[in-house]
């Protein structure tokens, strides 16, 4: 008699839990989600599995370290020390040497339009201002003279500069580099499922906890936030978009986007609204997406076609979707 009574009680307790939607009846652990402010944007990391919290915390420490290395404006950063050097040769960390080296590769493949020494030009353009202005033509011409990535050389951990005026700006590559480092860190913690979003730069690790692929939406240019033009399945994949709609202003019917062409000092005059790169490395995706925007559709397609394991999704000016 007593055992039957107990059985009923157990059955009903389970019923209560089920009815109240209590998490303990579900076997799936909630993912650990953490947001933070780095790289002048909001970042979000979603980590699943054991040690997820520990791993995510370490990721945020890494972001802090990367910011301390690559910030152009922080006077305590390594890049600041490089830009305010007294000698032509500067010893730098592995991180900085590597990103500069990769930056010079993008310079080569972009016909000099993507240039990590663009700082003198980009400081003339203020896309965040309430009332943005087109800089004086003479000022731009003067600034463009100081921009030349061919005057920077990487020799092991030494940066060699041919000109004392050359200043580095690695802002276009930092988020990509960070995403790669975070993914590596998560793997070291034994994590097999995670999603990283660094201000729109997406990197996935493995699958979702339920075994399906992560789905990553691609922002539709000039539309409401999170309105997507298409969605891609992304397993262990970096998805990085670059587009004219991110930061821009209009003057006399002309759109001035934040994607600056180092060879002219003016915003890219291209037939693309957006370029999205799917690749293993996010540093690669970060660089290539901007290079594509600068090259325009035809040349961008050729560039991506020639690279194994890299795919691109383009949005032409006017809003038409095109894949490579």
């Amino acid at each position: 008699m007593f055992s039957r009574y107990k059985k009923t009680a157990v059955f009903l307790t389970v019923l209560i839990l089920a009815l109240s939607g209590c998490q303990s009846v579900s076997s799936q652990k909630e993912p650990f989600v953490k947001k933070g402010f780095y790289f002048d944007t909001v970042i979000e990391i979603q980590v699943n599995g054991d040690r997820s919290e520990e791993a995510a915390k370490r990721c945020f420490e890494i972001c802090d370290e990367i910011e301390h290395t690559f910030s152009r404006t922080r006077s305590d950063s390594e890049l600041y020390r490089v830009n305010h050097r007294k000698e032509d040769r500067v010893q730098v960390s592995d991180d900085l040497a590597y990103v500069v080296k990769r930056g010079l590769e993008f310079y080569q493949m972009s016909e000099g339009k993507f240039d990590i020494t663009i700082a003198p030009v980009s400081s003339l353009w203020n896309f965040k201002s309430e009332d943005p202005q087109i800089p004086e033509e003479s000022a731009i011409k003067e600034a463009v003279k100081k921009v030349d990535a061919s005057k920077v050389h990487v020799q092991g951990n030494t940066l060699v500069f041919d000109s004392s005026e050359t200043m580095l700006d690695l802002g276009a590559l930092v988020k990509g580099y960070a995403a790669d480092k975070l993914k590596k860190c998560l793997k070291e913690y034994g994590i097999s499922s995670a999603m990283i979003n660094l201000g729109g730069n997406v990197m996935t690790l493995g699958n979702k906890p339920d075994g399906t692929d992560w789905s990553v939406g691609i922002q539709k240019p000039f539309s409401r936030r999170n309105e997507v033009i298409t969605t891609v399945k992304a397993r262990d994949c970096s998805v990085v978009s670059s587009g004219v709609y991110e930061r821009y202003f209009e003057k006399d019917g002309v759109l001035y986007s934040h994607i600056l062409d180092a060879s002219t000092g003016y915003p890219a005059n291209s037939d693309l609204w957006q370029a999205t790169i799917l690749s293993d490395s996010s540093l690669e995706g970060d660089g290539l997406s901007t290079v594509c925007m600068l090259l325009g559709y035809e040349k961008a397609r050729e560039l991506i076609d020639g690279r194994d394991g890299t795919e691109a999704i383009f949005v032409l000016d006017g809003g038409q979707l095109a894949e490579n």
Binding site: K35, F37, V42, M195, N201, V216, G217, Q219, N226, V239
Partner: peptide, 25 residues
């Protein structure tokens, strides 16, 4: 919507299950 200086984040949690896991922008 983010206000970076004041560290304020307005985030809409969509109930639409068709929505992707995240958005690249």
């Amino acid at each position: 919507i983010v206000c970076l200086p004041n560290r304020v984040i307005l985030e809409v949690i969509s109930s639409n299950s068709q929505a992707p896991d995240t958005v690249a922008s």
